[in-house]
């Protein structure tokens, strides 16, 4: 009996490993290995096509990128981007989800319309919005802002204006991304037990109090997730930067990823690109851990 059991276990091990092997091999070769490679390369001076022999440089690359004004500006831009986009996009997603989460006819149609930009590739969105941001009074965004400000808006060249280029990228990111967050919040709203609201109504609590004391606390984990994902997306920003502004004017819209690709791909500086990559990963890691910590703490306080 015992013998039979062990044999069965062994059989499972063999089959299980053969079933998991293709995926695990793929993850090892194309996720774990490259990441380890990035770590190793970041401590060298590797530059493709360089006649110099490869050398161990210690933390020299990290010291250099930290002193690089473009990289510092990139970090600042990513942080600014997150600081503006995360609260706006989360609030909008919550607002839209609340608007749609009512027993009115046609809500499914509106949901479809709000979600539609999500299926658009960022490259296409960037190309179309470049046209929308066309300079001069004939540009669509300029005309729209003139209409909204009752004629006070003076035409600007959004993508070549140091003050407006980053906000311009923020706006299209929100447009493209809010539907995704909205669907997640909507799912969160629909998982709140109706009995909670019924009980509150019996107790005579009004809509605001229901929102404040039922909806928000029940949505806490969903909202924390949405904030986490949007923050990380803000640090991954690349496609629209590359296509619309190429980091300019000056370094006004450069991002961490834009600096990494500039170094590794445009200038063949693999070591520098790797060091930026590792830094980028550390940022993502810190955001993730910070968020986890926040959730934990709030739970223990309860």
């Amino acid at each position: 009996m015992i013998e039979q059991k062990t044999r069965k276990l062994n059989d499972d091990t063999r089959v299980a490993i053969s079933m998991a092997a293709p995926a695990l091999t793929g993850l090892f070769l194309f996720v774990v290995l490259p990441f380890a490679l990035a770590l190793v390369l970041s401590f060298t001076n590797l530059r493709l096509g360089s006649p110099l022999p490869i050398q161990f440089w210690g933390f020299e690359q990290y010291r250099r990128i930290w002193l690089d004004p473009s990289f510092r500006q990139a970090l600042l831009n990513n942080a600014l981007f997150a600081l503006v986009v995360v609260p706006i996009q989360t609030t909008l997603a919550l607002g839209l989800a609340l608007l749609l989460n009512r027993p009115l006819k046609g809500m499914a149609v509106f949901r479809t319309l709000f979600f539609m930009p999500v299926v658009f590739p960022m490259a296409l969105v960037s190309v179309i919005w470049t046209i929308i941001y066309a300079p001069g009074a004939d540009g669509m965004m300029n005309a729209f802002l003139k209409f909204m400000t009752l004629g006070f808006w003076q035409p600007r060249d959004f993508l070549h204006d140091p003050a407006l280029a980053l906000p311009a990228l923020m706006l299209l990111s929100i447009w493209q991304g809010v539907g995704f967050q909205m669907v997640i919040v909507l799912a969160g709203l629909q998982s709140i037990p109706i009995s909670l609201y019924e009980a509150a109504r019996v107790d005579g609590s009004d809509r605001w109090n229901q929102f404040r004391y039922i909806t928000l606390p029940q949505l806490r984990n969903t909202l924390i997730f949405v904030v986490l994902v949007t923050t990380i997306l803000s640090f991954r920003l690349f496609d629209s930067v590359r296509i619309m502004t190429n980091g300019g004017p000056g370094d006004a819209t450069t991002t961490v990823m834009n600096e990494a690709i500039k170094a590794a791909f445009d200038q063949q500086k693999m070591a520098k690109g790797s060091a930026i990559t590792v830094t980028f990963f550390l940022i993502v890691l810190v955001i993730t851990l910070l968020q986890r910590l926040l959730v934990q703490e709030e739970r223990t306080i309860e």
Partner: peptide
Amino acid sequence: LMILPFEAIAVPLFFQ
């Protein structure tokens, strides 16, 4: 590995 975005491995993968 789920928290590792593609961007974090793009450069070394390109090298590979």
